[in-house]
């Protein structure tokens, strides 16, 4: 066993060199890597902690919102229900108004159709009445309706002779108006009767399609007439009573 001082010095230097080499190529790189990784892990942990705090804050906020929503849920539902009911009432009122308007329109249309029908009945009834009466007169008395009407009017004129003369003196023309053209025989008879009351008085014959069947004589304030209107009015009254008691007029879906 011996100690070589040169070897000791060499080994001491070798050892110090080895310390430097390992510090340079082993400890520093390894420890730097470990430190960097620990720093990165710490940063990630910090980020995770922050993310967790954010998540917890979000959860708290969500829970608060949920609690608020649960608290206001009944109020919100009541408000929405009231809104829905108000809207429903509005829609129902609008529908009712529309139905009412349609009903009124339908009733107006029905009344119009009714009046048209009655007018038609009026005209038809008048024509039928005139026709039947004329035929009956012709069959039974061998006279025409126009001649009997002229006779009737002439009989009414006699009490008004004074008024007729005043009108004649005033130069007022005597106008005879019929719905259809008056037959010549009836004209001659009426002219003869008028001359019997007011000699020299001329008659002016006119037709008016809007007038009812019959005869109207106007001379100033004198107004003598016979028309089927009064009879037709009675017929109308009778028909309306019948319609009220037993409506036989059927109205289809369009109101006709």
């Amino acid at each position: 066993m011996s100690i070589d001082w040169i070897t000791i010095a060499a080994q001491l230097i070798n050892f110090l060199v080895l310390v430097w080499l390992l510090k340079r190529f082993l400890y520093r790189p390894i420890l730097s890597g470990i430190d960097a990784r620990e720093t990165e892990i710490a940063e990630r942990m910090l980020e995770a902690s922050r993310a967790r705090e954010k998540a917890e804050a979000a959860e708290t906020r969500y829970n608060d919102l949920a609690a608020t929503f649960r608290t206001n849920e009944a109020t919100l539902i009541d408000n929405q229900r009231q809104k829905a009911e108000a809207e429903r009432d509005t829609l129902i009122a609008e529908a009712r108004a529309r139905l009412e308007q349609e009903r009124k329109d339908w009733e107006a249309h029905l009344a119009q159709e009714k009046s048209k029908y009655i007018a038609h009945l009026h005209r038809s009834g008048a024509a039928l009445l005139v026709s039947l009466t004329g035929k009956a007169l012709h069959d039974l008395a061998d006279e025409t309706l126009e001649e009997r009407v002229v006779t009737h009017v002439a009989r009414q004129l006699k009490p008004m002779a004074a008024d007729l003369r005043k009108a004649a003196n005033a130069g007022t023309p005597a106008v005879v108006t019929t719905r259809y053209v008056l037959p010549d025989a009836a004209r001659v008879k009426l002219v003869a009767n008028m001359k019997g009351l007011i000699p020299g008085q001329k008659l002016q014959f006119e037709t008016d399609p809007a007038q009812s069947a019959g005869l109207v004589l106007r001379m100033g304030a004198v107004h003598v007439a016979w028309t089927v209107d009064s009879y037709i009015e009675e017929l109308d009254t009778m028909l309306e009573e019948r319609l009220v008691q037993d409506p036989i007029v059927k109205v289809d879906s369009d109101g006709h």
Binding site: N14, V17, L18, L22, F25, I30, S32, G33, E40
Partner: peptide, 22 residues
Amino acid sequence: NTWIIMAVLTGISMLITRKLRP
């Protein structure tokens, strides 16, 4: 032999840590 051991230790360390990236 000390140099050999130094070379082994240093060589292994250099080989392993030469491409060290965090």
